[in-house]
Amino acid sequence: MTEFVHLHVHSEYSLLDGLSSCKELAERAVELGNRALALTDHGVMYGAVQFYKACREAGIKPISGMEAYVAPRSHRDRDAKLDRKPYHLVLLAQNDTGYHNLMRLATIAQLEGFYYKPRVDKELLAEHSDGLIVLSGCGSSEVSRLLQNGQSDQARKVINWYRDVFPGRYYLELQEHDIPELTQVNRQLISLARELDLPLVATNDTHYTRREDASIHDVLLCIQTGKTVTEPKRMRMNGDSFYLKSGEEMAALFPEAPDALANTLRIAEMCQVELEFGHYHLPPFQVPEGYDAQSYLRHLCEEGLHRKYTPVTPRERERLDYELDIIHQMGF
């Protein structure tokens, strides 16, 4: 059996684009003998907790990630001609710092960068680069688009930027989906990897769990675009290859780059994120000198009590003590 880990996977939380539930993906990964599985939904982390729990329940390592939308200019720019087509980029959390940076990027993308898609930009990526592993992306990535347009020198500049910002954590991503342009890009990426001494990684752009799910996924795309399956001119995936493939299937796609498959295992080993449940995660609150959190809360409540009640009767005092006891007993 060829060992392989899927690092580019969309669930139903890639709304109207991914078909599978987190549970289905985790269970199928186990059937394939995978030791880990990543989730990289489009621009969001809605499914992160559910995915983490599903993988733990299935007995494999969850890898938290996101396929980010990167604005061609600033994430705040909103020009209809220049900013409607963001680049795709895969981000994986290597550790707890990376997981928090993923959450920050996803939040900023929604609150500040949303223009058709939730977007970040390179300045934000550099600011939140710690603990993140980066895959160069699919055919809609910046590097792939430049190579498809014959701009190999500019592609090198982009690659070098990512290599500098994510030292030792940037991989050139290979995908094969019977798309002629993508096949040509793969050849160039392999050449650039050898030239620039960068690692390759093989992925499958997974949007559904099994090959036979392709027709159902096609219906989902019709819902997304407001079309019917009988319309010839509509968005559709090229073939039925966007599923969780076996290691053997992936090895057959990239016989010239066995290191690209081996690096999926390497990345899986690098990613060590543990999420804790059943505990409160409260933000730190600075209290004045001479107080701890409980005594300062008591101090504030006492001030408020005397401000609102004159005089303070045993009834109000008893109620305040009761409320504070409940708060402290619950761990707040």
Rank of each mutant, 00 (worst) to 15 (best):
E269V: 01
L265R: 12
G247M: 09
F285C: 07
M270Y: 08
Q286P: 04
Q286R: 11
L282W: 14
G290N: 03
D292Q: 04
E276I: 11
E289L: 09
A252N: 11
R236V: 13
E269M: 01
S295T: 11
G247K: 07
G278C: 02
I267M: 04
F285D: 07
E274Y: 08
G290R: 00
G290D: 01
G290E: 02
G278Y: 00
A260L: 03
E249M: 02
L275Q: 06
P258N: 10
D259V: 03
R266Q: 15
P255L: 07
Q272M: 05
A260G: 05
M235Y: 15
P283N: 09
Q286S: 11
Q272T: 08
S246L: 02
P288C: 05
E276S: 12
F285T: 05
Q286D: 11
P288A: 03
A257D: 07
F254G: 13
H281F: 15
R266I: 14
E249F: 00
M237K: 13
F285H: 06
I267W: 04
L275C: 10
F254H: 14
P288G: 03
A268M: 02
G247Y: 05
A293K: 08
C271P: 06
P255I: 11
S241F: 14
E289C: 09
A293L: 12
A268W: 00
L244N: 03
F254E: 11
L253D: 05
M250K: 03
Y243M: 04
E276P: 06
Q272W: 05
K245I: 04
A252L: 13
I267Y: 04
A260D: 06
A268E: 00
C271I: 04
E269L: 05
E289P: 04
H281Y: 13
A268T: 02
E256S: 14
M237N: 13
N263H: 13
E248L: 01
S246K: 01
N263C: 10
S295Q: 09
E289F: 07
L282Q: 15
P284K: 06
L282K: 14
R266D: 12
G247F: 06
G239A: 06
A251I: 05
H279N: 15
A252W: 10
E274P: 03
P288K: 03
A252K: 14
S241V: 14
S241K: 14
L265N: 11
A257S: 10
L282P: 10
D292N: 10
S246Q: 00
E249C: 00
G239E: 05
P283V: 09
P288S: 06
F254A: 12
V287I: 10
M270Q: 12
Y243R: 01
P255W: 08
C271H: 04
A293C: 06
D292T: 02
P288N: 04
A257V: 06
R266E: 14
A251Q: 03
L244Y: 03
H281D: 13
G239T: 05
F277D: 07
F285W: 10
Y291P: 01
E256T: 13
R236Q: 14
P258F: 08
D292K: 02
Q272D: 11
S241I: 13
L282C: 13
E289N: 08
F277E: 04
E269S: 06
F285P: 00
D259A: 04
G290T: 01
E248H: 01
Y280C: 15
G239L: 07
P258D: 11
L253I: 06
G247C: 09
P284R: 08
